[in-house]
């Protein structure tokens, strides 16, 4: 496993794409978060809502480069044919996938942490007194929201890697994952029936996972913060297992 990890780390650091995509995640997350907090309707008594969640909402956009990076990590090799070289060098296929998963979550964790801390700092600087207080007074929940958002990005990376391993094509992989993330919430808006709406929000990887960002009004959420992140983790586990199974059984 160690040589395989070393190889994957060398791969990811010797091309420019991954670094740009990770910087894209940081930039998109912080920028959208700052934009959202700057238009928050604050009054001297409070900011009328979940300011932590508001500061961190940039992740909705910032996850997209993570998805692209995670898909390309393996589908890019299928596109060039380099996957055969990889599997020739390390014939234990699941080891190759595991090494990719570890390397990927490692770099996404770093970028995600920077993005989340940047967003919270931006929110703290932008929000007026009461909103600022909300950000810091709820330390426990804010910490959960921050750490949970980083974990969410890591899980989205794993979900994307699993899907890409199964479909082996960059465009299809990115399409499937972004569709899963963005289309399901849209569908849940269109569905009129409140029962179905709540159910979709409970099981969709994005809306469930980002419940971890909530710091106020937890009772009104369709799913509790950690349970929501657990749903996203379930998606990642299913996708990765399917990918690993297909990688093992198919001709490379």
């Amino acid at each position: 496993m160690r040589p395989a990890l070393h190889a994957e780390w060398t791969k990811i650091r010797t091309v420019a794409g991954p670094l740009w995509l990770l910087l894209g995640t940081v930039a998109a997350t912080v920028a959208l978060g700052a934009g959202a907090t700057s238009v928050a309707g604050c009054t001297p008594t409070g900011c009328g809502g979940d300011t932590t969640r508001l500061s961190l909402m940039g992740v909705y956009l910032g996850q997209a480069p993570v998805v692209i990076l995670a898909v390309l990590v393996i589908s890019g090799e299928y596109a060039s044919g380099m996957i055969r070289t990889s599997l020739t060098a390390v014939p234990q296929r699941v080891t190759v996938l595991a090494a990719k998963a570890v390397t990927l979550t490692g770099v996404v964790a770093v970028a995600g942490t920077v993005a989340v801390l940047g967003s919270l700092l931006a929110g703290w600087l932008i929000l007026p007194g009461p909103g600022r207080q909300a950000l810091s007074s709820a330390e426990g929940p804010t910490l959960r929201a921050a750490a949970g958002t980083v974990l969410y990005l890591m899980l989205i990376a794993l979900l994307s890697l699993g899907v890409a391993t199964a479909v082996r094509d960059s465009a299809t992989g990115i399409g499937v994952v972004l569709g899963l993330l963005y289309v399901v919430p849209i569908v849940s808006q269109i569905v009129g029936d409140p029962y179905w709406q709540r159910l979709l929000q409970k099981i969709a990887p994005m809306s469930a996972g980002l419940a971890v960002q909530a710091t106020t009004n937890l009772r009104s959420l369709p799913v509790s913060p950690w349970a929501g992140l657990g749903v996203t983790a379930g998606w990642a586990v299913v996708a990765l297992s399917a990918g690993a199974l297909l990688l093992r059984t198919r001709d490379a």
Partner: peptide, 27 residues
């Protein structure tokens, strides 16, 4: 040692770095 498809490379990676990841995969 095998060569199946010489075009199977990441175009943005240098030749040396391509060999480097392979070398690292073998310790």
């Amino acid at each position: 040692g095998s060569l199946l498809d010489a075009a199977a490379l990441h175009p943005g990676r240098s030749g040396r770095n391509h060999l480097l990841w392979l070398a690292h995969a073998q310790g």
